[in-house]
Amino acid sequence: MGARIEVVGLTKSYGDLRAVDDLTFTIEPGEFFGLLGPNGAGKTTALEMIEGLRKPDAGSVSIDGHDPWRRDPRLQRRIGVQLQSSAFFERLTAREQLVTFASLYDAPAERADALLAEVGLEDKADSRVEKLSGGQAQRLSIACALVHDPEIVFLDEPSSALDPQARRNLWDFLQGLSGSGRTVVLTTHYMEEAEVLCDRVAIIDHGRLLELDSPAALVRGLDAPTRITLAPEAIDEGAAREVGGVDEVTVYPDRIELSTRRPAEVLAELARRDALHGLSASGASLEDVFLQLTGREYRS
């Protein structure tokens, strides 16, 4: 299972806009790979070129030595694609939709029922697709991408429109896909999702690759302080500023937050002062890395 994907100098322009600018990276067989970036960064354009849905202006994509743009049926049968927005056959039920997709690949119809259960749509099997909610349609779209049991799976923002419970269930399902040896390529705006699922992530902006590494390695390289949060009654602002190792104190209506690069020292002092009420501590996250690399300005 799985496949090696090589992207070399991938470039795509629309008029004066360079949507993807000389992207180069490799995805290893069986890897869960994330492609991250703000709105308009070029993620979807890059993904569509890797999938073979869009022709590059320059550069190349190779999936186990095959060019996906050539539409080789032998390669296409190995690929499953979930698009950012999907269109279904009208007036079909969820199960009929999946059975139709399965028939295109000569996959057994029984696969449809198994997938409906796996994506939590068993009770919607006989519902017409136009009656599904946004989140249910998203899960059906993912099932359609997997109905022929592909080795390589491309997922473009699969958890958008899902509520927190459905998103967590989807993560469990996707981790199972990766655990079975498939190569999975994901775009997402949820940094926690990328941290949980991805072996490595590529962060891009303005079509260019900014960083590529595992989420943990990227977070370690940020050298960000630890944030220690306490209930407001645990310690007052003046006393908090006297704690050795504290670099910054921020007071909010419902909490007090201490920033430090020496968390063990600070926590030990707080314990000595019996000031641990409401304690929580958090280090840097992939979101912090993302914001440092791409900025905080609004993107349309």
Rank of each mutant, 00 (worst) to 15 (best):
A194R: 10
R208I: 02
F88H: 01
L92A: 09
V219D: 00
W69M: 01
E193R: 06
D199Y: 03
Q136E: 15
R70D: 12
L162A: 04
L115Y: 09
R167G: 01
A202M: 03
F154M: 08
R273Y: 09
L146N: 10
L83S: 13
G278Q: 08
T24C: 03
A224S: 11
V99N: 05
I235Y: 04
E6V: 15
H277M: 09
E193A: 00
V185M: 14
Y298P: 01
A102M: 06
L291C: 05
T226S: 11
T24P: 02
V81C: 02
E6L: 05
G244Q: 12
S282C: 01
R255W: 06
L36M: 13
W69E: 03
E248L: 15
Q82S: 07
V246Y: 07
G42L: 07
P73N: 11
I142V: 15
A3T: 04
P73A: 08
L17F: 14
L140K: 08
L17D: 06
H66K: 12
F88T: 07
Y298G: 07
S141D: 08
T26Q: 00
I152Y: 02
E110N: 15
F89K: 05
G179S: 12
G42R: 05
H148R: 08
L92F: 13
R4S: 12
P263V: 00
P253V: 04
K12Y: 08
S280Q: 13
G40N: 11
M191Q: 09
I152K: 00
I50R: 03
G245Q: 08
I228C: 10
